[in-house]
Simulated assay, not measured.
Amino acid sequence: MSFPNIYTHRKVAEGSAKGCEICFKPTSSVLITPENKDFFYICPVHLKDRGFCTPIVDKAAEEAKKKKAEEDKEAKMKEEIELVKKEYEEKQKKKKKEEKDKEKEAEKEKDKDKKDDKDKEKDKKGDKDDKDKKKDEKEAETPATDEPRVFALQKFVYQQRLDKKRQAEIAKRNRERMSNPSFFPSVPKGLP
């Protein structure tokens, strides 16, 4: 029974963790073939070892990711530019209002300046909080790791997996034969 040398990296629940195929430490990472014909537990550290396996990179997907990242950067820049423009316009409007207020009432100017300063400080704090929240949301949306998910085992490791699978099949066949009573020779019935 042969299967392709394409293994997908998957995670299982921590409660289902078993010993790594190489170092026997408990791990929740599994490499599995597409048709689920073969699987084994492996530490994520071993996946980075080029002597054990190599990642299979889909060039079209990589190019699409890069293009999408560039588009996202451009969109972010446009959003930031719009925010800066809005802030600038708001500041200009506030300045015009302040000038009109100064012209109208010279006596109340002192009181209004104090109130405006307090409002400005509150607005600045609110704007900073909004910007921080937006940055946190954007960071949360981006994936933490861009590790490859598909691997090809090195030749000798793949051959070991094939041999192990064949031995398991042979052992299963032998157990089935041994459980069948017709497998053993019958006792001679005639006299010698």
Rank of each mutant, 00 (worst) to 15 (best):
residue 89 E to I: 00
residue 84 V to M: 14
residue 110 K to V: 07
residue 114 K to N: 05
residue 77 M to V: 13
residue 75 A to V: 01
residue 102 K to G: 01
residue 89 E to P: 00
residue 85 K to P: 01
residue 92 Q to P: 01
residue 108 K to V: 05
residue 100 K to V: 07
residue 98 E to R: 09
residue 109 E to P: 04
residue 111 D to T: 02
residue 104 K to V: 01
residue 104 K to W: 06
residue 75 A to S: 00
residue 93 K to N: 09
residue 85 K to V: 09
residue 92 Q to E: 14
residue 103 E to P: 01
residue 104 K to G: 00
residue 76 K to N: 14
residue 107 E to L: 06
residue 80 E to R: 15
residue 112 K to P: 00
residue 81 I to V: 14
residue 88 Y to I: 08
residue 93 K to A: 09
residue 79 E to C: 04
residue 90 E to I: 05
residue 98 E to P: 03
residue 91 K to A: 15
residue 114 K to W: 00
residue 106 A to V: 04
residue 103 E to W: 03
residue 80 E to I: 12
residue 76 K to V: 12
residue 105 E to L: 11
residue 87 E to Y: 12
residue 98 E to M: 09
residue 112 K to Y: 03
residue 91 K to Y: 13
residue 77 M to C: 13
residue 105 E to M: 11
residue 87 E to R: 14
residue 84 V to G: 07
residue 111 D to E: 11
residue 110 K to Y: 05
residue 86 K to W: 05
residue 113 D to M: 11
residue 94 K to H: 14
residue 78 K to R: 09
residue 92 Q to N: 10
residue 107 E to R: 02
residue 101 D to E: 13
residue 114 K to L: 07
residue 76 K to S: 13
residue 106 A to D: 09
residue 96 K to F: 08
residue 101 D to S: 06
residue 112 K to G: 06
residue 78 K to Y: 06
residue 77 M to S: 14
residue 90 E to Q: 08
residue 81 I to E: 15
residue 91 K to V: 14
residue 91 K to N: 15
residue 99 E to A: 00
residue 84 V to A: 15
residue 75 A to C: 03
residue 92 Q to C: 10
residue 114 K to M: 04
residue 95 K to S: 12
residue 96 K to I: 04
residue 106 A to L: 09
residue 87 E to L: 11
residue 83 L to I: 12
residue 86 K to C: 03
residue 109 E to G: 00
residue 114 K to I: 06
residue 91 K to H: 15
residue 111 D to N: 07
residue 78 K to L: 08
residue 95 K to D: 12
residue 100 K to I: 03
residue 91 K to D: 14
residue 83 L to E: 15
residue 101 D to G: 04
residue 87 E to D: 12
residue 96 K to Y: 07
residue 96 K to A: 08
residue 105 E to A: 11
residue 85 K to A: 10
residue 93 K to L: 09
residue 89 E to W: 04
residue 112 K to I: 02
residue 96 K to P: 00
residue 79 E to G: 05
residue 107 E to I: 02
residue 111 D to L: 07
residue 84 V to E: 15
residue 97 K to W: 11
residue 76 K to H: 13
residue 75 A to N: 00
residue 101 D to V: 01
residue 99 E to K: 06
residue 86 K to M: 04
residue 97 K to F: 12
residue 114 K to F: 03
residue 104 K to D: 08
residue 93 K to W: 08
residue 111 D to H: 06
residue 84 V to W: 12
residue 111 D to C: 00
residue 94 K to V: 14
residue 95 K to T: 13
residue 90 E to V: 01
residue 88 Y to E: 12
